[in-house]
Design a protein around this nucleic acid. Sequence first.
DNA 1: TGTACATCAGTGAACGCGCGTTCACTGATGTAC
DNA 2: TGTACATCAGTGAACGCGCGTTCACTGATGTAC
Lengths: 205, 205
Amino acid sequence: MARGTDTRKKIMDIAQDAVLAKGFDATSIEEIVATAEITKSGFFYHFRDKNALAHALIERHIIVEDALFDDVLGRGKELSDDPLQAALIGLKLLAELIEDMPGGHPGCIVATAVYQDRLFDKNVHEANRRAVQGWRARFLAMFEEIAAVYPIRDDVALAHLADMVSAVVEGGLLMSRAMGDPKITAQQVLLMRSYVKLLFSPTAQ
Amino acid sequence: MARGTDTRKKIMDIAQDAVLAKGFDATSIEEIVATAEITKSGFFYHFRDKNALAHALIERHIIVEDALFDDVLGRGKELSDDPLQAALIGLKLLAELIEDMPGGHPGCIVATAVYQDRLFDKNVHEANRRAVQGWRARFLAMFEEIAAVYPIRDDVALAHLADMVSAVVEGGLLMSRAMGDPKITAQQVLLMRSYVKLLFSPTAQ
DNA sequence: TGTACATCAGTGAACGCGCGTTCACTGATGTAC
DNA sequence: TGTACATCAGTGAACGCGCGTTCACTGATGTAC
Protein backbone atom coordinates (compact mmCIF):
# COMPACT_ATOMS: atom_id res chain seq x y z
CA MET A 1 0.00 0.00 0.00
CA ALA A 2 1.35 3.37 1.02
CA ARG A 3 5.11 3.38 1.28
CA GLY A 4 6.38 2.30 4.65
CA THR A 5 3.12 0.66 5.68
CA ASP A 6 4.44 -2.77 4.81
CA THR A 7 7.54 -2.29 6.97
CA ARG A 8 5.40 -1.42 9.97
CA LYS A 9 3.25 -4.48 9.41
CA LYS A 10 6.37 -6.60 8.95
CA ILE A 11 7.75 -5.40 12.28
CA MET A 12 4.48 -6.19 14.02
CA ASP A 13 4.20 -9.67 12.49
CA ILE A 14 7.73 -10.58 13.50
CA ALA A 15 7.27 -9.10 16.95
CA GLN A 16 4.00 -10.94 17.50
CA ASP A 17 5.55 -14.32 16.73
CA ALA A 18 8.47 -13.63 19.03
CA VAL A 19 6.35 -12.25 21.87
CA LEU A 20 4.01 -15.23 21.80
CA ALA A 21 6.98 -17.57 21.83
CA LYS A 22 9.06 -15.90 24.51
CA GLY A 23 7.24 -13.05 26.18
CA PHE A 24 7.71 -9.33 25.85
CA ASP A 25 10.84 -8.62 27.81
CA ALA A 26 12.67 -11.49 26.17
CA THR A 27 11.90 -10.12 22.72
CA SER A 28 14.55 -7.53 21.91
CA ILE A 29 14.22 -4.77 19.36
CA GLU A 30 17.60 -5.85 18.04
CA GLU A 31 16.28 -9.29 17.18
CA ILE A 32 13.13 -7.90 15.57
CA VAL A 33 15.00 -5.52 13.26
CA ALA A 34 17.50 -8.23 12.35
CA THR A 35 14.68 -10.47 11.14
CA ALA A 36 12.92 -7.56 9.43
CA GLU A 37 16.21 -6.55 7.79
CA ILE A 38 16.10 -2.93 8.82
CA THR A 39 18.18 -0.97 11.33
CA LYS A 40 17.27 -0.25 14.90
CA SER A 41 16.62 3.39 14.04
CA GLY A 42 14.16 2.20 11.42
CA PHE A 43 12.18 0.58 14.20
CA PHE A 44 12.09 3.81 16.17
CA TYR A 45 10.77 5.65 13.17
CA HIS A 46 7.66 3.44 13.29
CA PHE A 47 7.29 3.13 17.08
CA ARG A 48 8.16 5.77 19.61
CA ASP A 49 9.34 3.13 22.08
CA LYS A 50 8.83 -0.52 23.00
CA ASN A 51 5.66 0.32 24.82
CA ALA A 52 4.11 1.72 21.66
CA LEU A 53 4.81 -1.59 19.95
CA ALA A 54 3.02 -3.46 22.74
CA HIS A 55 0.04 -1.16 22.45
CA ALA A 56 -0.14 -1.57 18.68
CA LEU A 57 0.07 -5.36 18.94
CA ILE A 58 -2.76 -5.54 21.47
CA GLU A 59 -4.91 -3.11 19.49
CA ARG A 60 -4.47 -5.16 16.34
CA HIS A 61 -5.02 -8.41 18.20
CA ILE A 62 -8.38 -7.16 19.49
CA ILE A 63 -9.52 -6.28 15.97
CA VAL A 64 -8.44 -9.61 14.47
CA GLU A 65 -10.03 -11.58 17.26
CA ASP A 66 -13.26 -9.62 17.11
CA ALA A 67 -13.51 -10.39 13.41
CA LEU A 68 -12.90 -14.07 14.14
CA PHE A 69 -15.65 -14.19 16.78
CA ASP A 70 -18.02 -12.24 14.54
CA ASP A 71 -17.41 -14.73 11.79
CA VAL A 72 -17.91 -17.85 13.87
CA LEU A 73 -20.93 -16.68 15.86
CA GLY A 74 -22.42 -15.08 12.73
CA ARG A 75 -22.22 -18.38 10.89
CA GLY A 76 -23.97 -20.03 13.83
CA LYS A 77 -26.84 -17.57 13.46
CA GLU A 78 -26.99 -18.19 9.73
CA LEU A 79 -27.32 -21.90 10.30
CA SER A 80 -30.06 -21.76 12.94
CA ASP A 81 -32.73 -19.28 13.98
CA ASP A 82 -32.81 -20.74 17.44
CA PRO A 83 -30.42 -18.76 19.69
CA LEU A 84 -29.32 -21.84 21.65
CA GLN A 85 -28.60 -23.87 18.54
CA ALA A 86 -26.83 -20.89 16.97
CA ALA A 87 -24.58 -20.58 20.03
CA LEU A 88 -23.83 -24.31 20.10
CA ILE A 89 -22.91 -24.22 16.40
CA GLY A 90 -20.79 -21.12 16.96
CA LEU A 91 -18.86 -22.73 19.81
CA LYS A 92 -18.35 -25.89 17.76
CA LEU A 93 -16.98 -23.84 14.87
CA LEU A 94 -14.72 -21.96 17.26
CA ALA A 95 -13.31 -25.23 18.58
CA GLU A 96 -12.71 -26.48 15.03
CA LEU A 97 -11.04 -23.22 14.07
CA ILE A 98 -8.65 -23.41 17.02
CA GLU A 99 -7.95 -27.08 16.37
CA ASP A 100 -7.16 -26.52 12.69
CA MET A 101 -4.53 -23.91 13.37
CA PRO A 102 -1.17 -25.27 12.29
CA GLY A 103 0.79 -26.17 15.40
CA GLY A 104 -2.12 -25.11 17.58
CA HIS A 105 -3.28 -21.61 18.40
CA PRO A 106 -0.20 -19.49 18.97
CA GLY A 107 -1.53 -18.01 22.20
CA CYS A 108 -2.94 -14.71 23.24
CA ILE A 109 -1.12 -11.39 23.22
CA VAL A 110 -3.39 -10.10 25.95
CA ALA A 111 -2.33 -12.95 28.22
CA THR A 112 1.37 -12.29 27.74
CA ALA A 113 0.82 -8.63 28.55
CA VAL A 114 -1.28 -9.37 31.63
CA TYR A 115 1.46 -11.53 33.09
CA GLN A 116 4.15 -8.89 32.56
CA ASP A 117 2.77 -5.84 34.22
CA ARG A 118 5.85 -3.67 34.29
CA LEU A 119 7.20 -2.08 31.15
CA PHE A 120 3.68 -1.30 30.14
CA ASP A 121 2.06 2.03 30.83
CA LYS A 122 -1.58 2.91 31.41
CA ASN A 123 -2.44 2.77 27.71
CA VAL A 124 -1.49 -0.88 27.49
CA HIS A 125 -3.34 -1.82 30.64
CA GLU A 126 -6.38 0.06 29.43
CA ALA A 127 -6.26 -1.72 26.08
CA ASN A 128 -6.11 -5.02 27.92
CA ARG A 129 -9.14 -4.20 29.99
CA ARG A 130 -11.05 -3.13 26.90
CA ALA A 131 -10.23 -6.41 25.20
CA VAL A 132 -11.52 -8.55 28.06
CA GLN A 133 -14.57 -6.32 28.47
CA GLY A 134 -15.31 -6.67 24.76
CA TRP A 135 -15.35 -10.45 25.02
CA ARG A 136 -17.63 -10.23 28.03
CA ALA A 137 -20.14 -7.98 26.24
CA ARG A 138 -20.17 -10.21 23.17
CA PHE A 139 -20.89 -13.46 24.98
CA LEU A 140 -23.25 -11.81 27.45
CA ALA A 141 -25.43 -10.72 24.52
CA MET A 142 -25.33 -14.27 23.20
CA PHE A 143 -26.44 -15.78 26.50
CA GLU A 144 -29.14 -13.17 27.00
CA GLU A 145 -30.68 -14.10 23.69
CA ILE A 146 -30.73 -17.72 24.78
CA ALA A 147 -32.12 -16.94 28.23
CA ALA A 148 -34.96 -14.97 26.66
CA VAL A 149 -36.18 -18.21 25.09
CA TYR A 150 -35.00 -21.02 27.37
CA PRO A 151 -35.20 -21.27 31.14
CA ILE A 152 -31.83 -21.66 32.82
CA ARG A 153 -31.31 -24.88 34.78
CA ASP A 154 -29.02 -23.51 37.48
CA ASP A 155 -28.74 -20.25 39.33
CA VAL A 156 -25.77 -18.64 37.60
CA ALA A 157 -25.20 -15.04 36.48
CA LEU A 158 -25.08 -14.64 32.70
CA ALA A 159 -22.21 -12.16 33.01
CA HIS A 160 -20.10 -14.77 34.81
CA LEU A 161 -21.06 -17.31 32.16
CA ALA A 162 -19.92 -14.87 29.49
CA ASP A 163 -16.56 -14.51 31.26
CA MET A 164 -16.28 -18.27 31.39
CA VAL A 165 -15.93 -18.50 27.62
CA SER A 166 -12.89 -16.26 27.74
CA ALA A 167 -11.53 -17.94 30.86
CA VAL A 168 -11.79 -21.38 29.30
CA VAL A 169 -10.05 -20.25 26.12
CA GLU A 170 -7.25 -18.46 27.96
CA GLY A 171 -6.87 -21.28 30.46
CA GLY A 172 -6.86 -23.79 27.63
CA LEU A 173 -4.13 -21.91 25.79
CA LEU A 174 -2.03 -21.84 28.93
CA MET A 175 -2.41 -25.56 29.51
CA SER A 176 -1.70 -26.29 25.86
CA ARG A 177 1.59 -24.48 26.19
CA ALA A 178 2.51 -26.04 29.50
CA MET A 179 1.78 -29.57 28.28
CA GLY A 180 2.96 -29.07 24.72
CA ASP A 181 -0.39 -30.43 23.56
CA PRO A 182 -2.12 -28.16 21.01
CA LYS A 183 -5.43 -30.01 21.25
CA ILE A 184 -6.28 -28.94 24.78
CA THR A 185 -7.74 -25.53 23.95
CA ALA A 186 -10.26 -26.93 21.46
CA GLN A 187 -11.24 -29.66 23.94
CA GLN A 188 -11.94 -27.02 26.55
CA VAL A 189 -14.11 -24.97 24.19
CA LEU A 190 -16.15 -28.10 23.53
CA LEU A 191 -16.62 -28.63 27.26
CA MET A 192 -17.85 -25.05 27.54
CA ARG A 193 -20.29 -25.89 24.76
CA SER A 194 -21.45 -28.96 26.68
CA TYR A 195 -22.08 -26.81 29.76
CA VAL A 196 -24.13 -24.32 27.75
CA LYS A 197 -26.11 -27.19 26.28
CA LEU A 198 -26.90 -28.73 29.68
CA LEU A 199 -27.62 -25.36 31.22
CA PHE A 200 -30.27 -24.34 28.69
CA SER A 201 -31.57 -27.56 27.14
CA PRO A 202 -35.16 -28.24 28.29
CA THR A 203 -34.58 -32.01 28.21
CA ALA A 204 -30.86 -32.36 28.54
CA GLN A 205 -29.87 -35.64 27.03
CA MET B 1 16.00 -23.43 61.68
CA ALA B 2 19.44 -24.26 60.35
CA ARG B 3 21.53 -21.17 59.76
CA GLY B 4 21.02 -19.66 56.34
CA THR B 5 17.76 -21.46 55.71
CA ASP B 6 15.73 -18.38 56.61
CA THR B 7 17.67 -16.20 54.18
CA ARG B 8 16.91 -18.61 51.35
CA LYS B 9 13.23 -18.60 52.25
CA LYS B 10 13.28 -14.81 52.53
CA ILE B 11 14.74 -14.52 49.02
CA MET B 12 12.09 -16.84 47.63
CA ASP B 13 9.22 -15.03 49.34
CA ILE B 14 10.36 -11.65 48.08
CA ALA B 15 10.99 -13.02 44.61
CA GLN B 16 7.59 -14.70 44.45
CA ASP B 17 5.76 -11.47 45.24
CA ALA B 18 7.74 -9.58 42.65
CA VAL B 19 7.43 -12.25 39.96
CA LEU B 20 3.67 -12.48 40.38
CA ALA B 21 3.41 -8.71 40.20
CA LYS B 22 5.71 -8.07 37.25
CA GLY B 23 6.88 -11.25 35.62
CA PHE B 24 10.23 -12.96 35.74
CA ASP B 25 12.40 -10.87 33.47
CA ALA B 26 11.21 -7.68 35.07
CA THR B 27 12.23 -8.92 38.52
CA SER B 28 15.92 -8.18 38.95
CA ILE B 29 18.23 -9.88 41.38
CA GLU B 30 19.37 -6.42 42.45
CA GLU B 31 15.89 -5.53 43.57
CA ILE B 32 15.42 -8.83 45.40
CA VAL B 33 18.64 -8.53 47.39
CA ALA B 34 17.90 -4.89 48.23
CA THR B 35 14.58 -5.89 49.78
CA ALA B 36 16.15 -8.91 51.50
CA GLU B 37 18.98 -6.70 52.79
CA ILE B 38 21.79 -8.91 51.60
CA THR B 39 24.36 -8.42 48.84
CA LYS B 40 24.11 -9.77 45.31
CA SER B 41 26.79 -12.31 46.04
CA GLY B 42 24.69 -13.53 48.93
CA PHE B 43 21.99 -14.37 46.44
CA PHE B 44 24.42 -16.36 44.31
CA TYR B 45 25.46 -18.35 47.32
CA HIS B 46 21.88 -19.66 47.61
CA PHE B 47 21.07 -19.95 43.90
CA ARG B 48 23.50 -20.85 41.14
CA ASP B 49 21.74 -18.51 38.71
CA LYS B 50 18.39 -16.90 38.03
CA ASN B 51 17.12 -20.08 36.46
CA ALA B 52 17.70 -21.99 39.69
CA LEU B 53 15.51 -19.45 41.49
CA ALA B 54 12.71 -20.00 38.95
CA HIS B 55 12.96 -23.74 39.41
CA ALA B 56 12.86 -23.47 43.19
CA LEU B 57 9.84 -21.17 43.09
CA ILE B 58 7.87 -23.51 40.85
CA GLU B 59 8.83 -26.56 42.88
CA ARG B 60 7.69 -24.89 46.09
CA HIS B 61 4.53 -23.57 44.44
CA ILE B 62 3.55 -27.11 43.41
CA ILE B 63 3.95 -28.38 46.96
CA VAL B 64 1.95 -25.53 48.50
CA GLU B 65 -0.82 -25.85 45.95
CA ASP B 66 -1.02 -29.60 46.32
CA ALA B 67 -1.44 -29.20 50.05
CA LEU B 68 -4.19 -26.66 49.43
CA PHE B 69 -6.07 -28.96 47.07
CA ASP B 70 -5.60 -31.92 49.42
CA ASP B 71 -7.06 -29.87 52.22
CA VAL B 72 -10.08 -28.60 50.34
CA LEU B 73 -11.02 -31.85 48.59
CA GLY B 74 -10.24 -33.83 51.74
CA ARG B 75 -12.68 -31.72 53.72
CA GLY B 76 -15.29 -32.36 51.03
CA LYS B 77 -14.85 -36.09 51.54
CA GLU B 78 -15.10 -35.68 55.30
CA LEU B 79 -18.41 -33.88 54.94
CA SER B 80 -20.03 -36.35 52.55
CA ASP B 81 -19.61 -40.00 51.67
CA ASP B 82 -21.17 -39.41 48.27
CA PRO B 83 -18.40 -38.67 45.72
CA LEU B 84 -20.50 -36.11 43.82
CA GLN B 85 -21.48 -34.21 46.96
CA ALA B 86 -17.90 -34.39 48.21
CA ALA B 87 -16.66 -32.86 44.95
CA LEU B 88 -19.29 -30.12 45.00
CA ILE B 89 -18.39 -29.25 48.57
CA GLY B 90 -14.69 -29.29 47.70
CA LEU B 91 -15.19 -26.91 44.75
CA LYS B 92 -17.30 -24.61 46.89
CA LEU B 93 -14.59 -24.52 49.55
CA LEU B 94 -12.00 -23.84 46.88
CA ALA B 95 -14.01 -20.88 45.60
CA GLU B 96 -14.37 -19.50 49.11
CA LEU B 97 -10.67 -19.93 49.78
CA ILE B 98 -9.78 -17.99 46.65
CA GLU B 99 -12.32 -15.31 47.38
CA ASP B 100 -11.09 -14.82 50.94
CA MET B 101 -7.52 -14.17 49.92
CA PRO B 102 -6.67 -10.57 50.74
CA GLY B 103 -6.58 -8.62 47.50
CA GLY B 104 -7.51 -11.71 45.56
CA HIS B 105 -5.36 -14.70 44.70
CA PRO B 106 -1.92 -13.37 43.75
CA GLY B 107 -1.74 -15.48 40.58
CA CYS B 108 0.05 -18.57 39.53
CA ILE B 109 3.81 -18.93 39.23
CA VAL B 110 3.32 -21.67 36.66
CA ALA B 111 1.38 -19.29 34.43
CA THR B 112 4.04 -16.60 34.56
CA ALA B 113 6.68 -19.17 33.62
CA VAL B 114 4.60 -20.61 30.78
CA TYR B 115 4.23 -17.21 29.20
CA GLN B 116 7.95 -16.48 29.36
CA ASP B 117 9.58 -19.42 27.71
CA ARG B 118 13.07 -18.09 27.21
CA LEU B 119 15.41 -17.76 30.17
CA PHE B 120 14.16 -21.06 31.43
CA ASP B 121 15.92 -24.32 30.73
CA LYS B 122 14.55 -27.84 30.44
CA ASN B 123 14.30 -28.29 34.21
CA VAL B 124 11.86 -25.42 34.53
CA HIS B 125 9.75 -26.56 31.60
CA GLU B 126 9.69 -30.07 32.98
CA ALA B 127 8.61 -28.80 36.39
CA ASN B 128 5.81 -26.88 34.71
CA ARG B 129 4.57 -29.95 32.87
CA ARG B 130 4.67 -31.97 36.07
CA ALA B 131 2.59 -29.35 37.84
CA VAL B 132 -0.14 -29.34 35.21
CA GLN B 133 -0.08 -33.12 34.98
CA GLY B 134 -0.44 -33.35 38.76
CA TRP B 135 -3.59 -31.24 38.67
CA ARG B 136 -4.97 -33.41 35.88
CA ALA B 137 -4.38 -36.66 37.78
CA ARG B 138 -5.93 -35.27 40.93
CA PHE B 139 -9.17 -34.10 39.36
CA LEU B 140 -9.39 -37.09 37.04
CA ALA B 141 -9.44 -39.36 40.10
CA MET B 142 -12.18 -37.21 41.58
CA PHE B 143 -14.34 -37.42 38.46
CA GLU B 144 -13.76 -41.15 38.07
CA GLU B 145 -15.10 -41.72 41.57
CA ILE B 146 -18.22 -39.77 40.66
CA ALA B 147 -18.65 -41.51 37.30
CA ALA B 148 -18.48 -44.89 39.03
CA VAL B 149 -21.70 -43.99 40.85
CA TYR B 150 -23.55 -41.52 38.65
CA PRO B 151 -24.21 -41.72 34.90
CA ILE B 152 -22.80 -38.81 32.96
CA ARG B 153 -25.32 -36.67 31.12
CA ASP B 154 -23.16 -35.67 28.15
CA ASP B 155 -20.48 -37.39 26.12
CA VAL B 156 -17.33 -35.79 27.49
CA ALA B 157 -13.96 -37.29 28.39
CA LEU B 158 -13.23 -37.25 32.12
CA ALA B 159 -9.59 -36.30 31.42
CA HIS B 160 -10.72 -33.18 29.58
CA LEU B 161 -13.10 -32.39 32.41
CA ALA B 162 -10.21 -32.72 34.85
CA ASP B 163 -8.18 -30.26 32.77
CA MET B 164 -11.14 -27.89 32.78
CA VAL B 165 -10.79 -27.31 36.52
CA SER B 166 -7.23 -26.08 36.02
CA ALA B 167 -8.14 -24.15 32.87
CA VAL B 168 -10.98 -22.34 34.61
CA VAL B 169 -8.79 -21.40 37.57
CA GLU B 170 -5.89 -20.21 35.40
CA GLY B 171 -8.23 -18.41 33.00
CA GLY B 172 -10.05 -16.85 35.93
CA LEU B 173 -6.80 -15.59 37.45
CA LEU B 174 -5.83 -14.06 34.13
CA MET B 175 -9.16 -12.27 33.75
CA SER B 176 -9.03 -11.10 37.36
CA ARG B 177 -5.72 -9.44 36.66
CA ALA B 178 -6.77 -7.96 33.35
CA MET B 179 -9.98 -6.49 34.79
CA GLY B 180 -8.57 -5.64 38.20
CA ASP B 181 -11.49 -7.57 39.72
CA PRO B 182 -10.34 -10.15 42.30
CA LYS B 183 -13.76 -11.82 42.48
CA ILE B 184 -13.68 -13.30 38.96
CA THR B 185 -11.63 -16.40 39.78
CA ALA B 186 -13.96 -17.55 42.53
CA GLN B 187 -16.97 -16.93 40.28
CA GLN B 188 -15.44 -19.13 37.62
CA VAL B 189 -14.77 -21.96 40.06
CA LEU B 190 -18.44 -21.82 41.08
CA LEU B 191 -19.47 -22.09 37.42
CA MET B 192 -17.24 -25.14 37.08
CA ARG B 193 -19.04 -26.54 40.10
CA SER B 194 -22.39 -25.84 38.46
CA TYR B 195 -21.26 -27.73 35.34
CA VAL B 196 -20.18 -30.74 37.42
CA LYS B 197 -23.53 -30.68 39.20
CA LEU B 198 -25.55 -30.60 35.95
CA LEU B 199 -23.31 -33.19 34.34
CA PHE B 200 -23.74 -35.83 37.03
CA SER B 201 -27.00 -35.01 38.82
CA PRO B 202 -29.64 -37.62 38.01
CA THR B 203 -32.43 -35.06 38.21
CA ALA B 204 -30.75 -31.77 37.52
CA GLN B 205 -32.88 -29.08 39.07
C1' DT C 1 38.88 -28.77 77.28
C1' DG C 2 41.70 -26.81 73.75
C1' DT C 3 43.39 -26.60 69.17
C1' DA C 4 43.23 -27.31 63.92
C1' DC C 5 40.68 -27.59 60.24
C1' DA C 6 36.38 -27.52 57.36
C1' DT C 7 32.25 -25.78 56.08
C1' DC C 8 28.64 -22.17 56.05
C1' DA C 9 26.87 -17.95 54.84
C1' DG C 10 27.92 -14.60 53.24
C1' DT C 11 30.89 -9.53 51.49
C1' DG C 12 32.82 -6.22 47.99
C1' DA C 13 34.57 -4.96 43.86
C1' DA C 14 34.80 -5.54 39.14
C1' DC C 15 33.37 -6.82 34.45
C1' DG C 16 31.30 -6.98 30.17
C1' DC C 17 27.64 -7.00 27.28
C1' DG C 18 23.13 -6.48 25.56
C1' DC C 19 19.57 -3.46 25.27
C1' DG C 20 16.58 0.66 24.71
C1' DT C 21 17.02 5.17 23.25
C1' DT C 22 18.92 9.45 20.96
C1' DC C 23 20.58 12.38 17.40
C1' DA C 24 22.35 14.27 13.29
C1' DC C 25 21.97 13.18 8.82
C1' DT C 26 20.12 11.36 3.91
C1' DG C 27 18.09 9.75 -0.40
C1' DA C 28 13.61 8.98 -2.41
C1' DT C 29 8.95 10.33 -3.04
C1' DG C 30 5.13 13.75 -3.00
C1' DT C 31 3.13 18.59 -3.43
C1' DA C 32 2.62 23.80 -4.59
C1' DC C 33 3.17 27.17 -7.78
C1' DT D 1 6.73 21.23 -17.30
C1' DG D 2 10.29 22.61 -14.19
C1' DT D 3 11.87 24.07 -9.85
C1' DA D 4 11.70 24.57 -4.55
C1' DC D 5 10.44 22.77 -0.64
C1' DA D 6 8.38 19.34 2.65
C1' DT D 7 7.64 15.01 4.21
C1' DC D 8 8.59 10.01 4.38
C1' DA D 9 11.19 6.21 5.54
C1' DG D 10 14.68 5.29 6.89
C1' DT D 11 20.67 4.92 8.11
C1' DG D 12 24.82 4.83 11.26
C1' DA D 13 27.19 5.75 15.16
C1' DA D 14 27.27 6.47 19.85
C1' DC D 15 25.86 6.27 24.69
C1' DG D 16 24.95 4.88 29.16
C1' DC D 17 23.14 2.01 32.35
C1' DG D 18 21.26 -1.92 34.45
C1' DC D 19 21.79 -6.53 34.96
C1' DG D 20 23.56 -11.28 35.55
C1' DT D 21 27.64 -13.38 36.74
C1' DT D 22 32.44 -14.16 38.63
C1' DC D 23 36.10 -14.29 41.90
C1' DA D 24 39.05 -13.68 45.71
C1' DC D 25 38.34 -13.18 50.25
C1' DT D 26 36.23 -13.40 55.39
C1' DG D 27 34.16 -13.95 59.94
C1' DA D 28 31.20 -17.14 62.38
C1' DT D 29 29.79 -21.71 63.37
C1' DG D 30 30.49 -26.77 63.54
C1' DT D 31 33.43 -31.09 63.91
C1' DA D 32 37.56 -34.39 64.91
C1' DC D 33 40.91 -35.65 67.90
